[in-house]
Design a protein around this nucleic acid. Structure first.
Lengths: 125, 125
DNA sequence: ATATTACTTAGCTATTTAGCTAATAAGATT
DNA sequence: AATCTTATTAGCTAAATAGCTAAGTAATAT
């Protein structure tokens, strides 16, 4: 389970527009890093593979993007893997899955408690 | 649907420990504001009903807590209602529900895309 | 009418953040 | 070996943030 500290880090990481966009970019851009393992040579959506490639999509300096990626990594919502010269980036889907579950649990518990207390359901306006 | 700006505000609101704890407090503390409407006089879990009551649970000044509550409100994850002297606070469950759905969609799409591309499923290690 | 309660606003300070450039490190290429 | 590519680190600045106290507003109670 994600403890509070981890959640705070994730929220902080995603609270900045630049980092949010980088995350989106990494998440939707492709998983060349994975692909390399499975089908070497196959290149799809090479948008978000490495730091400088990500940086090309932003009007910020490479060190700025690098620092943001570091923060996303420390929040554990992306993983990075150095291969030779480059740092390959992947979304950490398991953490996002956990986060989704956290929010879902919150909502479900709320609904259940409400039903228990008031004896109504959400469908009843 | 929550656009990026709204999401950024929510993440920012939840990225600070004090605000996170206030949110937790409000979320789990009780919904006296709602109860007042339904069953006037019934008091349950009066922990998070109003600003000063929330503030009692923190070692920060009332203005500090007030400002945090304002930010949670502007992120739209709580609602506030002034009744006479007091400001009653409730969690905005619908926004949390939307957020849960966003994350769930992200995860589901990821899994589907992966299956489409690689022809495997998550259960296959 | 006055005092009290509940909350917000104003104005301040210390700290953190997000950006930059320049310098450094470490592979890859020639 | 020398150079180029990729990325990080260091050191800087402007702006934002999170806390505070004091003062102000508005409703309630005396």
């Amino acid at each position: 389970m994600l403890d509070m500290e981890r959640k705070l880090k994730i929220f902080k990481a995603l609270s900045n527009q630049t980092r949010f966009m980088i995350f989106k970019n990494v998440f939707t851009g492709g998983y060349t890093c994975s692909l390399d393992k499975v089908q070497p040579g196959v290149k799809v959506n090479p948008i978000a593979t490495c730091v400088s490639t990500v940086a090309e999509h932003f009007n910020f300096s490479l060190p700025t993007i690098s620092a943001h990626i570091k923060e996303l990594k420390e929040a554990n919502i992306i993983t990075v893997e150095k291969k030779g010269n480059k740092v390959y980036i992947e979304p950490n889907i398991e953490i996002i899955r956990e986060l989704a579950e956290c929010f879902q649990t919150l909502v479900t518990n709320f609904d259940n408690n409400r039903e228990l207390f008031f004896g109504d359901t959400l469908s009843v306006g």
